[in-house]
Write a protein that binds this DNA or RNA. Structure first.
Length: 581
RNA sequence: GGGCCGGUAGCUCAGUUAGGGAGAGCGACGGACUCUUAAUCCGUCGGUCGAGGGUUCAAAUCCCUUCCGGCCCGCCA
């Protein structure tokens, strides 16, 4: 489970899959542990050791508290890779994702996103109306963007599911609220309430505040709608509880209750998180669940205990993932340090993003947008390693195993819930180096981009049209990256003559250069000629280059000028050098 | 205070499962291309493997201690 408010998690770390780290070295299976180059295989081993029933159930979950961001994708993609490995081993796998949407809204997020991922500030919606819903379940709060969804909770759960589909991970989203309302959760709630003394005893070992008055079940007040905690069992046989709406504590502030006293059924409330999580395992038969490191020392140990000693089930195989940072800072919805999946997919291919999550979950990583070129380069190298083109044994072992899962996601089939793999491994695929792609992004013309790529040997002569099209797709993304970061690749060939202020020597030098270009010399020759002309006209080379850059890019720096001009239409270059248009 | 996870080159990271050569990419620097101008190619530099101790013929890897960072041990996810 990932979380809602806090600096959200994300990183990765295979936690101590129960078997691997701590515990079980003493166990039976010594010797059968195989080395795996891909962590998902090691996790899959552990899942298989449980002798799970088919289908194997992999779960994740999150509170739909606000904009789904990249951190939440640990929850989805870590499970996805394990699921894919298990499928490959012949198992039937069901990957579900609970929207923990009966959780109460504890504070208003600073920013929201509409159904099309447009991020808006809290002030752009009716914050006052939204603020009246503190303490109420997400599914009991109106969609802040009007009627696009039935509730706040559904709005953000839907965004998350949509984002998962963008990276070809189909997840089955289950609403907690529905599980409660439909009565599906009742058996677990009953078991816990029937054994409430044991339940308290178990949890009290992990939480000091648990005393004889603690109720694992909370009720949504029929009067004011908040999730209140002052609950006592009235008649378990009838399935009713009594409550008094005394309010709840949300972070540093108290949400006042209305004081109403009433009775409610087991469908009208929710289990506290520490019980809800194991109850989900029980109800859904969960075999594997990844979670952020915040849970590793908190709710996981108590959940495991509750599963065994209150619900009498075997807890799932756990996996802790480390959180990652964004641009060197913790992800934080409140501080605004978040990036969404659609945003990221404007900058790189889905498989590169999937690759990021295929790396060791146990290591905290930084998702640094200013250096995405490095991530993409790493992915390209990883890809080449799969095809045996990299002299690196370790990387090759990892790539041979993980690459097919990284490039091949799944999409729902036309009917039913079965999914199918997409994106076959393509051997003839051309990947333009990312920074080179951003150089191509300086020009608009598609044919010119192709020609430049061919000249540099990045596109083979025999490349088919579809291969070229695929390769060019990266140019738009690299272009978007250069613009977003406004970095050394953010130059744009100016279609109209920029305003330039040149001195006499510069003008004559440029005129001479125009003649040289007009005579049909190629890019390399032009590049050389610039140096000669600078000398002949008593100019600093830097000044002449700057004049050239000014003419073509309206900046004082740019890519290798001569070669670049050599790629362009000759008459255009000549005209531009003569400041004629 | 207790616990979990990390710490390997300027940067991003492999390598720790099972002890034996300290590695890659990028960057930087140098060079080539008539050329100081971010796309190509060649080369070089670059690390007390956070620190200290122990075990061992041999430790980045195992053990102990310790420093730094993140997280948990309240709430909540």
């Amino acid at each position: 489970m990932s979380s809602e408010q806090t600096p959200d998690q994300d990183a990765d770390a295979t936690g101590p899959p129960s078997g691997s780290t701590a515990g079980s070295d003493a166990g039976d299976g010594g010797g059968e542990d195989e080395f795996h180059a891909f962590w998902a295989d090691a996790v899959a081993d552990e899942v298989e050791e449980r002798d799970p029933n088919e289908p194997i159930v992999i779960k994740g979950g999150v509170s739909p508290s606000g904009i789904p961001h990249l951190g939440h994708f640990n929850e989805i993609l870590r499970g996805h890779f394990v699921g894919e490995v298990l499928r490959e081993r012949g198992h039937e796998v069901r990957q579900v994702f609970t929207s923990d949407d009966r959780d109460p809204l504890r504070k208003l997020p600073r920013r929201l996103a509409d159904a099309d991922w447009n991020v808006v500030e809290l002030g752009d919606v009716d914050a006052g109306a939204l603020g009246k819903n503190l303490g109420k379940p997400y599914t009991a709060i109106p969609d802040p963007f009007g009627d696009c969804h039935d509730s706040y909770g559904e709005h953000f759960a839907d965004l998350l599911a949509g984002a998962a589909e963008l990276v070809d991970v189909p997840v089955e989203v289950l609403s907690n609220t529905e599980l409660y309302q439909s009565g599906e959760f009742e058996p677990e709630i009953r078991t816990i309430l029937e054994n409430v003394d044991t339940a308290r005893e178990v949890l009290s070992e992990y939480q000091d505040s648990v005393d004889a008055g603690y109720s694992p079940f909370r009720v949504v007040c029929e009067e004011c709608g908040i999730v209140t905690t002052d609950v006592t069992v009235a008649d378990l046989e009838e399935g009713t509880v009594a409550y008094e709406c005394t309010g709840i504590t949300a972070g540093d502030r108290e949400i006042e209750g209305c004081g109403h006293s009433g009775e409610a059924t087991l469908r009208d409330g929710k289990l506290s998180w520490r019980f809800e999580w194991p109850a989900q395992w029980s109800l859904l038969g969960v075999d594997f669940e990844p979670f952020g490191k915040d849970h590793a020392e908190g709710s996981w140990p108590s959940g495991e205990d509750i599963a065994r000693n209150v619900l009498d089930i075997q807890p799932p195989v756990p996996m802790t993932y480390e959180w990652f940072t964004l641009n060197g800072e913790p992800l934080s919805s409140s501080a605004g340090n978040v990036v969404t999946v659609p945003e990221v997919l404007e900058l790189l291919e889905p498989e590169v993003l999937r690759y990021f999550f295929a790396l060791d979950p146990n290591k905290a990583r930084d998702f640094d947008i200013s250096r995405l070129d490095q991530l993409v380069d790493d992915f390209d190298r990883f890809e080449r390693a799969y095809f045996g083109e990299v002299d690196d044994e370790e990387l090759t072992r990892f790539a041979e195993r993980a690459y097919p899962f990284v490039v091949a996601g799944r999409r729902p089939a036309a009917s039913g819930t079965e999914s199918r793999p997409v994106e076959e491994v393509k051997e003839d695929r051309v990947r333009l180096p990312y920074t080179f792609a951003s150089v191509l992004g300086m020009v608009e013309d598609r044919d010119l981009r192709v020609q430049m790529a061919r000249n540099e040997g990045h596109i083979p002569e025999d490349a088919g049209e579809d291969v070229i099209e695929d390769a060019l797709a990266r140019v738009e993304r690299a272009r978007a990256w250069a613009e977003r970061c406004d970095n050394a690749y953010n130059y744009r060939l100016q279609t109209d003559l920029p305003e330039v202020d040149l001195d006499e020597a510069e003008r004559t030098a440029l005129d001479d250069l125009a003649d040289f270009v007009a005579a049909g010399n190629d890019g390399e020759a032009i590049q050389g000629r610039i140096y000669e002309l600078a000398e002949e006209h008593g100019l600093e080379t830097g000044d002449l280059f700057a004049a050239g850059y000014k003419l073509f890019f309206d900046k004082t720096q740019g890519p290798r000028l001569g070669e670049f001009m050599g790629e362009l239409d000759r008459s255009f270059v000549v005209e531009r050098l003569r400041r004629e248009g």
